[in-house]
Design a protein around this nucleic acid. Structure first.
Lengths: 247, 247
DNA sequence: CAGTGGTCTAGACCACCGG
DNA sequence: CGGTGGTCTAGACCACTGC
């Protein structure tokens, strides 16, 4: 009960990926040639090569490391991630991870319909009174927020909404556990817009400053859209960055 | 010698993926429950389960099939793949999928250094005089362009640049064939910015209108960044949309 | 050349799903 | 319950890199 509640057992390769990711972000392997070879990792963590490779495959997909037959594994230069606020993201897990050293606090609002400017962007019959939330996300040690987020949760999930912890890292993570649904796919729409007064104020921006809006729709296994979120980011201080492997 | 020249030997799992992909697209497994299980595939193709799983992993990443423990593998309905706008961004070809019914014409410019606002965003020692191109992308039947694109090609690729067809769909596709390099990864940075006068004019926008900038870096197999491109899209009329499958 | 990561085999146990 | 896909082991051979 200390940290995690019902902590399901993670596969070994994901644990290993977490450990290695932390080490990389900590700067342990900052010099080229520092990153351990597969065989070293096998011995050090006492796992098979398969497990090591699955973990490294994950880090590769995240863009943290690069691998080359014959030469070895190298971590990607930190500068690529340090510049502005870069958020690598290739799967939903990493949307979560993006909440790494940031904090957010949501406030529930009055249930209502999805606003027009959002509804028109997602072709949908999102009828009914959805539960609303609003929050500001800040990065540790930074003054101005990196995002304002509005979220809407499906009317049928009232039970889950009632138990939501306002200070958790992400809403949909909680919805998953509390509402007994699980995300199977997410759609994202990214657009540059003029912020409303309220959003500009919350982000600490001037009138006319551009805002990046990321609109996400979360679908469960029955393909029901159970959460919609809109995040507004300051254009100058925030870049959404992603990484695509070609195989 | 017929189609491909030096056809290197493909790994078995990629060949298998090709065979299965063809079968799926041919409609062989259109009924749910038709797709063979792993063990069946192992026997049929006389390969180990590892090989089968690698092949299926590829098809999963392409969004062709879905797998669930306990139940099996099913092919995704064609509708999930046909939606022009929501395509999983799992490979480079699909990044430029939005180039589908659009046309672009590039104009070469004077070789020069990478501009500051671009260089600072990508961690790089992109020194030297890169070849520059600039083009407007328009959608058929539309008046105003949906993008202005600037691109820089690595100084060493002079030979390829000399042969570039100014009216092709994408630059990097040509660079690949002409320059004998192949894309292995791409990074993308998406940001909301204020457009410069020139860009606003080209896009048909007013002063103060927000612009979406997509900055891409293309890397070859030696991890050399051989092309950089910056696309500027009108904030109000353009949304970058993507689809993420959860694993 | 020795060592790297890429491919591949033949097993194994497990969590989950359906009947 | 039997069969599915998910995880994992302990081997093997290979293509490629760097020295």
């Amino acid at each position: 009960m200390a940290t995690k509640s019902s902590a399901k057992k993670k596969p070994r390769y994901l644990e290993l990926a977490d450990e290695l990711r932390e080490a990389v972000l900590r700067g342990d392997y900052s010099d080229p040639g520092d990153f351990p070879t597969e065989s070293v990792l096998c011995k050090k963590y006492d796992v098979s090569r398969f497990t090591v490779r699955e973990a490294l495959r994950k880090l590769t997909a995240e863009g943290l490391i690069t691998r080359k037959r014959g030469s070895g594994t190298v971590v990607q230069p930190a500068t690529a991630r340090a510049g502005a606020l870069h958020q690598p993201l290739s799967n939903v897990g990493e949307i979560l991870q993006y909440a790494h050293d940031t904090t957010i606090s949501f406030e529930p609002g009055k249930p209502g319909a999805i606003p027009h400017d959002v509804a028109e962007q997602i072709d949908t019959k999102a009828k009914g009174d959805w539960f609303t939330f609003r929050g500001k996300r800040t990065k540790l040690g930074r003054k101005r927020p990196i995002a304002v987020t509005e979220a809407w949760v499906h009317p049928e999930l009232a039970d889950a909404v009632a138990q939501i912890d306002i200070n958790a890292k992400t809403l949909f993570g909680q919805i998953e556990t509390l509402g007994q649904v699980s995300v199977t796919r997410v759609t994202q729409d990214i657009q540059a817009i003029k912020g409303t007064k309220k959003i500009l104020a919350d982000l600490g921006l001037e009138k006319g400053d551009p805002v990046l809006r990321i609109l996400r729709c979360y679908f469960d296994e029955t393909d029901r859209m159970f959460e919609i979120s809109a995040s507004y980011h300051p254009g100058e201080r925030f870049a959404y960055s992603m990484h695509i492997e070609v195989d």
